[in-house]
Write a protein that binds this DNA or RNA. Structure first.
Lengths: 153, 153
DNA sequence: TATTTGGTTCTTTTTTTTGTGAACCAACCG
DNA sequence: CGGTTGGTTCACAAAAAAAAGAACCAAATA
């Protein structure tokens, strides 16, 4: 069902997602759904194509649904679920990732507060600068998407 | 040496970095260096304040140096190394993180290529759109920093 | 009603990651 | 020299993450 090239690509996609902290199987399922010729796969197919246990797949799919990365639909007279990526979401997904970066600001600000009245002026200036940038970046995120849309049209 | 509040903050910073895929001790060392009143710490101090073994600290510090997240300097007549965060780097660091997001483009493009000639027009459109955005975002990164600098001045 | 299908849950096993501790080494110190 | 200091390395242990497998369940089917 899957060519060597496809399997390799799935593996690469899996590793990429692992690096972002996802568990291995979750990443490879994303890979499979991206590569799969119908852009969707059944529970069974996932078990077979990735040769993992049903329980592992069940857990991974539950996780992916909780994170709203996938959905499934069913076909009349067919009890199987057809899982697919919620691709229309990609911009929300990316926005989340960008926001994730800015989350640092929360503890950076706490560090700044904690260091109030202490020395290390140079260091503290860096921290404030850093925090300012994170705030700036957060506020810029919507504009980035807006700019892309308008530039595209 | 460290207050409860400081320890808690270090722990939070540690967990944040763990979520990004760093190993626990590495994240907590970053936390310690951020919170430490001198903004620097010796090997010994790290061992004591975080109550971990010398070997664990040695490995974590080697890692952090390899990643260019820390440096050390020495003091005349003192063999100890004083480790500190390379804070002036924060913008490079952030830039790397943003670029990391765009790395997805590489395999998204491979997926697009792999799907050439297949159906799922809707899905493929999403992929192309996604890829285009990643390209756009990558090209925008320098402007974001530039805009921040000019807006600050 | 018995059986198959599609999937979940729970317990156990395997694997990986993280950290320990002892031995070691090089530089300096007395 | 012989010992101390500052740190590294390596073999191993503890802990956590990932996956397996069997038992189970609910809906559909025969």
């Amino acid at each position: 069902m899957l060519s060597e090239k496809q399997k390799e690509l799935i593996e690469r996609i899996g590793v990429f997602h692992e690096h972002k902290g996802m568990q291995p199987l979750v990443g490879r399922i994303i890979g499979l759904l991206l590569v799969h010729s119908n852009a969707e796969a059944t529970f069974e197919e996932i078990v077979e194509e990735l040769s993992v246990s049903k329980s592992a797949v069940s857990n991974a799919l539950t996780f992916l649904q909780a994170k709203e990365r996938i959905t499934y639909h069913t076909k009349p007279g067919d009890r199987k679920r057809y899982f697919s990526l919620r691709m229309k979401n990609w911009s929300e997904e990316l926005e989340k990732e960008m926001l994730e970066i800015t989350k640092m600001k929360i503890f950076i600000d706490d560090v700044i507060k904690e260091r109030e009245g202490s020395s290390c002026a140079e260091f503290k200036k860096c921290l404030v600068d850093f925090s300012d940038f994170l705030e700036f970046f957060k506020s810029e995120i919507p504009s980035i998407f807006k700019k892309f849309r308008s530039q595209k049209a």
